[in-house]
Design a protein around this nucleic acid. Structure first.
Lengths: 337, 337
DNA sequence: CGCCGAGACTATATCGGTTAAGTCATCCGA
DNA sequence: TCGGATGACTTAACCGATATAGTCTCGGCG
């Protein structure tokens, strides 16, 4: 099957392709009558401009890039990214811009990919996720001049637009809730310590515990169920064991729940459990897990809108800080005396 | 920052861009010495060809497309697709071809996307997943002439290359294993009935049960935990309730496990549980769930190799049928008398 | 009546590659 | 010693858009 080009339309309309281009892009230079005729023909033959030709001529690729460099094994079971992508695409589809999605081995890989995409003119912008301390990606993206929207705290984002959730506020909400139930000793099993949002949550955990007079104990996990289970057993083995544990993702929380039940702790009477990200997983187990719920597709959609603006050189419309909402389920309750 | 073009290299090497093109692509027309000089310069300036120019000139986009049209909610927690993508990319990265990944609302959406990608020359090939009965996508992809590799049973694939797992053989393995343990009444909670692989598993289930003299009961799920739990309770409420249930994915299996335990059935002594897809999820719960394990990244990598070949017009090297392997864990055992 | 300006198009350059066709110089064999 | 083949390039067309510079026509106005 032959794909119609701008020249085919020009021939059928008895004008040159320049006229067709004007008509299709709403530019002046054609009469209203001719424009309508051209539009009708284009619609009739199902014309869509070649993305390659457009990219070459217009200097824009019509695509954004998203790279994730966590191990695929831990990634797979995190609903977060699928929902994020789904939200991004709801916005990108109408432009239309497509999404190049790639998993990388490590940050060097990721950076190499950005350089390759840039040199090949494959993308007009980048969604940056999983901000790390001493993140080497900033410098590269700035050097390349690739428009970027950061999904993370704006304190780190330099000149890039940022979209984020207020993790510190959420931590406050959770701790106040647990303190209100009567918990005194609280554990936290965090995510990868190199990630910036882990650090933000860590420091919020520390400061809020101090303010509320709680005893906080922290461990660093890696989002896998294995580590979640191991660290949970570790915390429960302590002499002054916590009566509640906050996990940095749903997978670790569920693994922790299972591990706790297995060594004989009843949830929630002997141990309360809170997960940072909500997902259908949290309702899969018994008791269902209390979780911080975020509108992840909305988060992705917002990031997409920002990146569309940024890639067009428009000023990005400030930030976006929504506080995750605590969804109460069966895994939290008053601690047994 | 300025991106080097083929002309920049030509200038520096004192040749025309045609010579540079010959040198870079390994074509005859330049002497060995000149070729080396050009290659050195290209490497020095970090040259990478513009994908747009290449696409326009060469008529190939340098990208493959993958569309999934299950609801994002149920998709998110399935590790399957992330692992699949990760496997695909391990092969695509070396060509290099990038992957356009999109979630669609329904099959009409998906088809519209194929047409748009085709008209815009955005992709050179399609990975087709979730084959359905009376699938409308075949006709469209054939009409458009888009090279396609099907991840599914070759009986359905017409002229397209196929990569698949032998679901029927796997069903036989599972049922023989359960029968060997002494189970007589076996339940099955399948996936979406419209999906071809669900049908294949259904009919294998029926025929193997008949052959082994087992009583089989089937229900149709939708891969979500909710349905998995509901259907499990339904099966367990029957007078001649099954002593083992086979689920079509890990999420339903885990939900089923939780549901069964909640209504007082002990696993595995009163109910054995088998999940079709293995994932870290299966080890997250207690008891850990016996599952059919597939090398999903390998599956994706193989599909990618096939599609690369197909998009270059090479004959695709036949099919690939690997039998999923039954990984035994705590959720299966002899039924209590 | 003739000049000016605006509107409606056309002609053409351009983006950065690939590739067919053309131009030399060199070497080989009869 | 000369015709022809070969190698090493160059020239130029092409892919399908966008955008700028012309061209032509017509209407208005002094």
């Amino acid at each position: 099957m032959k794909r119609p080009t701008i020249d085919d339309i020009a021939r059928r309309a008895n004008v040159t392709k320049a006229a067709v281009s004007f008509a299709l892009n709403g530019n002046p230079g054609v009469s209203a009558g001719t424009r309508e005729r051209i539009l009708a023909i284009a619609k009739d033959v199902g014309y869509q401009p070649s993305s390659a030709a457009r990219a070459l001529s217009g200097g824009r690729a019509g695509a954004f890039g998203l790279v994730i460099d966590r191990p695929a094994r831990s990634l797979g079971i995190e609903p977060f990214f699928m929902e994020l992508i789904s939200g991004m695409q709801s916005e990108l589809a109408r432009v239309p811009i497509s999404l190049l999605f790639t998993l990388a081995e490590d940050q060097s890989d990721e950076i190499a990919l950005y350089r390759a995409w840039w040199a090949q003119r494959r993308v007009d912008g980048i969604f940056l996720v999983d901000v790390r301390r001493a993140d080497r990606r900033w410098a590269v993206l700035e050097e390349l001049g690739l428009p970027t929207v950061v999904l993370g705290n704006p304190r780190d984002t330099r000149d890039f637009a940022a979209v984020w959730h207020d993790d510190a506020a959420a931590m406050r909400t959770v701790l106040e809730y647990l303190a209100g139930l009567g918990h005194k000793r609280i554990g936290r099993i965090g995510g990868l310590p190199a990630l910036r949002h882990t650090q933000i949550r860590n420091s919020a955990f520390r400061s809020v515990c101090r303010r509320l007079g709680l005893t906080g104990t922290m461990r660093s996990g890696d989002y896998t169920g294995e580590r979640g289970a191991v660290l949970t057993r570790e915390l429960l083995a302590e002499s002054a064991r916590p009566t509640a544990i906050i996990y940095d993702n749903d997978v670790m929380a569920i693994a922790g729940l299972t591990a706790a039940q297995q060594v004989g702790f009843s949830v929630p009477s002997e141990l309360s459990i809170v997960a940072w990200d909500d997902s259908p997983l949290c309702e899969l187990v018994h008791p269902a897990v209390t979780a911080l719920h975020r509108d992840v597709p909305g988060y992705g959609a917002h990031a997409a809108r920002q990146l569309i603006a940024a890639s067009q050189g428009k000023p990005t419309s400030g930030e976006y800080a929504e506080e995750p909402e605590l969804t109460l389920r069966g895994s939290t309750g008053r601690p047994r005396r």
